[in-house]
Amino acid sequence: MIARTLPIAVAVLALLTLPLWIGGTYYVNVTSQILFYAIFALGLNVLAGYGGLVSLGHAGLFGISSYVVGYMLQLGYGHTAAILMALAVGNVSMAIYALLSLRSTGIGFIMITLALGQILWGLAYRWISVTGGDNGINVPTRPAPFGLSLADSGNFYYATLVVFLLSVIAVAIFARSPLGAALMGTRDQPRRMNALGYHVLAIRFWACLFSGLLTSVSGILFVYYTQFISPQTLALTSSAEVLLMVISGGPGTLLGPIVGAGLVVVVKNVVSGFIERWNFLLGAIFVAIVILMPEGLVPGTVRLWRLATRKRAPAKAEIKTEGKP
């Protein structure tokens, strides 16, 4: 028990005290980015990791919530109204997105979500009267909950941290729950699950909504962080980036997407200072991970660690059950 709780306690303590020791606002801001991207990645992981439904249009859903915040503020509404509206629109959009894409699975699902993501990007890019087109929308202020102004990067960090911890707890609870087990069942043997009495489509639909909620939440944090939203946020590159976070860290694990988010954000912020070609590197990492460590960094490292520590690890034969999904 201690072996499990101790690392978590240390990690939470480290995060709580982070502004004190990390040495500078810049790094606090980078950590804030990691945290809200981790929420986004956790959201996609619910679908792609636990549900086996790889969405390549999630940046569109992320962007919708960001745009709604920007648009509502532009219309003169307050932050509370803007955030609530963003959550509502984000979830309704997710429901529509799910109804359209869940007609298919596997590769069909990937293609449809890619196309849906492009529609959303196209709307952001072309529906200039609402979105401002390429110029995007500026968000001049950040909210100040309980009188704490989030304009301060430390305060913003703590607000993001609270939302992040709540999200991690929510995903952890979900993953252990009966519904979570059912979702993973539909990933591995959808036909069997149906024959066992489960409503496979409904289970996937609920998973989409949960994923959509986390995606909306992270989109709102994102727009308040950058205080700007433009079509670039909804582009295929962004969907691919978050998918890379999930895949690189380890899909279907709790820690994987968080590690993946850390990796991508750090590489992007730090490495782009030295190398101009960030996208090239991103693509190369993608290819390398898929070829060399397809299960992701977290499970991959655990496997290597076990191999190294136990000299004769029992050869675990990879046996797949037959049967077509």
Binding site: V54, I107, T237, A240, L244, F280, G283, I291, P294
Partner: peptide, 20 residues
């Protein structure tokens, strides 16, 4: 037969191509 991997690899290649 691993379509997810194929999607990721082709996507990765397309990023590399675009940047190149």
């Amino acid at each position: 037969g691993d379509q997810l991997a194929q999607v990721l690899v082709t996507l990765g290649l397309s990023f590399m191509a675009a940047d190149a």
